[in-house]
Design a protein around this nucleic acid. Structure first.
Length: 455
RNA sequence: GUAGUCGUAGCUCAGUUGGUUAGAGCAUCAGAUUGUGAUUCUGAGGGUCGGGGGUUCGAGCCCCCUCGAUUACCCCA
């Protein structure tokens, strides 16, 4: 047996980390519920053809595929070999892999809606908090297994949904104490209008991929990339003009109107931004024309939440409107909009800014010392009484040196030691010691519960 | 998938131009100490130097391959 290990990019979470993660997750969940979203869980694995082709070429490569069982069965062996040949050519084959781990929560959700649309009440608001898997190369803040928290509304085109989702971001970050977050919005329609100005809608993907990198690589490199993506000098000039739009949100909208106002999609996009921006005045939305987001199914407003600039962690959430996600599964006409929180990155932000509350690390309240065979059996009975009254406690597992039992209590952050030796048994009392101060006091056993409660 | 850096005890790390039996601190365990945590003292255990191959009289150190961690790119949360 070699050294035990876990797969690349996965993690074990110890108690203190789990508690901190749960704090984030339950905060998000509570806010989702407050806004009327219902929980949904979908399987860890989906049929491969549910996922393939939904995330672009790069996405397909990053899907974890699960090899079929029984491929060594003689009656399957020819199929398996043919499947393997296809895989070697870089294609996927259901003869070899029929299932895959889910890559995000949005596509499985779309699949669920497509399967159940006849039963669902629209607008359907669901939230989903589950792990997803990507065969990406791990690095800082990026893992192969990580948790996504999504909330989506489908079956409604109302921009009030966007306003509500923006408020959810605000509420969650405020509750977590991340007050300096940035929430940026843009409209995919504006980017579509830009691509129309630059010769055609087929340029949209090239443009979005390039300008998405602006804050990372700078305007010159973006221009180089646009050039490599076969845009000519005039088109690049238009894009540069677009990217150079600055000022307050109102000023940006005015300037954008002069660029795209006479293009239908452009005007629509500007109107969308204007609406959301005005209805969500209470939170500090920032219109950011350089925001593009990679995923191609977005069609309207897009969001990106960024961590406070001082921590250099970048995006901690994103989302947007998609007009017709379920048509991928042959159920057209169900529009939707959704957002997502990046729990792992939020964790890093909170760790760095020391935002976790102190009292998260609750543990056993009291440790009964083991003072011998009969004493420990007696203590066990007392302990069960305390437990039945809701006090978390434990009994040291064996009779050993007192010092060792103290050390155990100290390491587990147990605040109180309860000592019942032969003397205490006889006198029907017990010694309660507060470890932090070293104070100790004798209580009658039937007063023990109150004594602990009052501490 | 591409490239850089790093892998020595449970943890953090020393280890000289390649040279005897690979070290330290912390942690662990035992004793001094069978009803009070600290400190101190004494002792012990713990390593195929990530793995494999090569060069050499001799490799923790040099070379190749491989695995893992990490960082950047691509892409993304």
């Amino acid at each position: 047996m070699s050294k035990p290990s876990i797969p690349q990019g996965t993690r074990d979470f110890s108690a203190d980390v789990v508690r901190k993660r749960n704090y984030i997750l339950s905060t998000i969940k509570n806010v989702f519920e407050l806004y009327g979203f219902q929980p949904l869980e979908t399987p860890a694995m989906e049929n491969l053809n549910t996922l393939m082709g939904k995330y672009g070429e790069e996405g397909d490569r990053l899907i974890f595929k699960i090899i079929n069982n029984g491929i060594n069965d003689p009656k399957n062996i020819d199929k398996a070999k043919a499947g393997f040949e296809k895989v070697l050519e870089g294609k996927s084959s259901t003869d070899l892999t029929e299932r895959a781990l889910k890559y995000d929560l949005t596509i499985p959700f779309a699949r669920y809606v497509a399967m159940n649309h006849a039963q669902l009440t629209f607008p359907f608001k669901r939230y989903q908090i589950q792990p997803v898997w990507r065969a990406d190369r791990p690095q800082k803040g990026r893992y192969r297994e990580f948790t996504q928290c999504d909330a989506d509304v489908v079956g409604s085109t109302s921009l009030l949904n966007e306003v509500e989702l923006a408020n959810i971001y605000h509420e969650v970050f405020t509750r977590l104490g991340i007050t300096n977050y940035e929430l940026r919005i843009n409209s995919r329609k504006i980017l579509t209008a830009l691509s129309e100005l630059c010769g055609g809608a087929d340029k949209l993907t090239d443009i979005t991929i390039a300008i998405d990198k602006l804050d990372k690589i700078g305007i010159e490199k973006v221009k180089e990339e646009l050039q490599q993506r076969n845009l000519n000098a005039d088109q690049i000039t238009i894009i540069e003009k677009y990217l150079n739009i600055t000022g307050t949100n109102e000023e940006k909208l005015t300037k954008a109107r002069s660029l795209f106002g006479n293009i239908e999609t452009g005007a629509k996009g500007i109107a969308e931004l204007e609406y959301v921006f005005h209805q969500a005045k209470n939170i500090k939305l920032q219109i950011d024309f350089t925001l593009a987001r990679g995923l191609n199914y977005y069609t309207g407003i897009i969001f990106e939440a960024k961590a406070p600039a001082e921590v250099q962690i970048g995006s901690i959430g994103g989302g947007g409107r998609y007009d017709d996600l379920t048509s991928l599964f042959d159920v057209p006409g169900i529009p939707g909009v959704g957002i997502s929180f990046g729990v792992d990155r939020i964790y890093d932000v909170m760790e760095e800014l020391k935002l976790f509350p102190e009292n998260l690390q609750v543990s056993t309240k009291a440790l009964f010392f083991n003072m011998g065979e009969t004493e420990s059996l007696f203590a066990f009975g007392i302990m069960q009484q305390l437990r039945s009254k809701g006090i978390a406690c434990e009994l040291y597992h064996e009779f050993t040196k007192i010092g060792k039992q103290f050390t155990y209590a100290e390491k587990k952050n147990i605040p109180y030691a309860i000592i019942i030796g032969s003397k205490e048994m006889e006198e029907k009392n017990c010694m309660v010691k507060t470890l932090a101060t070293g104070e100790q006091k004798v209580f009658a056993i039937d007063q023990l519960h109150e004594a602990i409660m009052n501490k």
